[in-house]
């Protein structure tokens, strides 16, 4: 385990809004190839935490070491250049372009060709874009207008875009929100296999406990801005405090994942 490099190290991260502590002194680490879930009740500070990691929000105090660099105060695009891919809770893609063009734009940016006024985008990194689309199973849709895709396919396209800068770390905000149960499992299975293969670290937030318990190597539980538990799915499931404030009786997710039912 000690041979695996640490991708992300968060120390004492805090943020408050108008006297309300949204995030209080959160610390954790994430290693290459590891899939880490961040869960907690609505309003526990997950989004704030996430926004601070990807540069959309400035922490009041604390440190974020991302791939060996202190990233506090950097803009999202600078953090992306370090090798961080993102997906959003509500998919963010370019609806007036084709599926392939969506990925090509990301590749154009990665190749630092954004201010190339004269080249042809259609020819730029065409194969690489196709390869990424094949990787997420979207190769057959490459020439389709992105605006016509079904929701589940948009999620996969977003994953392909997020992989365009050959990231070392993926930040996924509720990656399976709004998807059908089977689509959820398939998307996370795909993500997990890519992450393990390429040794990418994944940090994701999620409310679907079936997805979390199935795919997370480790789980962080946030409540009222503080980390209240951290550990393997079994440990978190068995934690009475987590059950009291978050998991509840376990009536609304798969029985297999309830406490004592085994993995």
């Amino acid at each position: 385990m000690s041979m695996v490099p640490t991708l992300l190290k968060v120390e004492g991260l805090s943020k408050s809004y108008g006297g309300v502590h949204a995030v209080r002194s959160v610390s954790f680490e994430l290693r290459a190839g590891e899939i880490l879930a961040l869960i907690g009740p609505n309003g526990a500070g997950k989004s704030t935490c996430f926004d601070m990691l990807n540069g959309q929000n400035m922490p009041d105090s604390g440190r974020i070491h991302l791939l060996g660099e202190d990233t506090v105060g950097r803009k999202p695009r600078a953090i992306w250049r370090l090798g961080v891919g993102r997906t959003f809770q509500i998919t963010a893609t370019f609806p007036t372009m084709t599926v392939r063009e969506n990925v090509q734009v990301a590749l154009v940016s990665y190749g630092r060709q954004l201010f190339n006024l004269w080249g042809s985008t259609a020819a730029y990194a065409r194969e690489e874009a196709g390869r990424l689309l094949d990787l997420v199973g979207m190769g057959a849709y490459a020439e389709r207008p992105c605006g016509e895709l079904a929701y589940g396919d948009l999620k996969r396209l977003e994953l392909a875009i997020a992989l365009a800068n050959q990231p070392r770390l993926l930040l996924m905000d509720e990656p399976t929100a709004g998807m059908a149960p089977r689509e959820r499992i398939e998307l996370m299975r795909l993500t997990a296999s890519i992450a393990r293969e390429q040794s990418i670290g994944v940090l994701f937030t999620e409310h679907d406990m079936d997805v979390v318990f199935e795919h997370a190597d480790r789980i962080l539980v946030l409540n009222r801005g503080s980390l209240i538990a951290e550990g393997s799915p079994e440990e978190v499931r068995g934690n009475p405090q987590v059950r009291a404030i978050y998991l509840g009786e376990g009536l609304v997710y798969d029985a297999r994942h309830r406490e004592g039912a085994g993995a």
Binding site: I39, G40, P41, N42, E174, A177, G178, H207, M209, I245, Y246, L247, G248, E249, G250, L251, V252, Y253
Partner: peptide, 14 residues
């Protein structure tokens, strides 16, 4: 009504 809510809140919703 249950979309994006924690399991505990979903139980309250029930």
């Amino acid at each position: 009504p249950s979309e994006g809510l924690s399991p505990k809140i979903v139980e309250q919703m029930v």
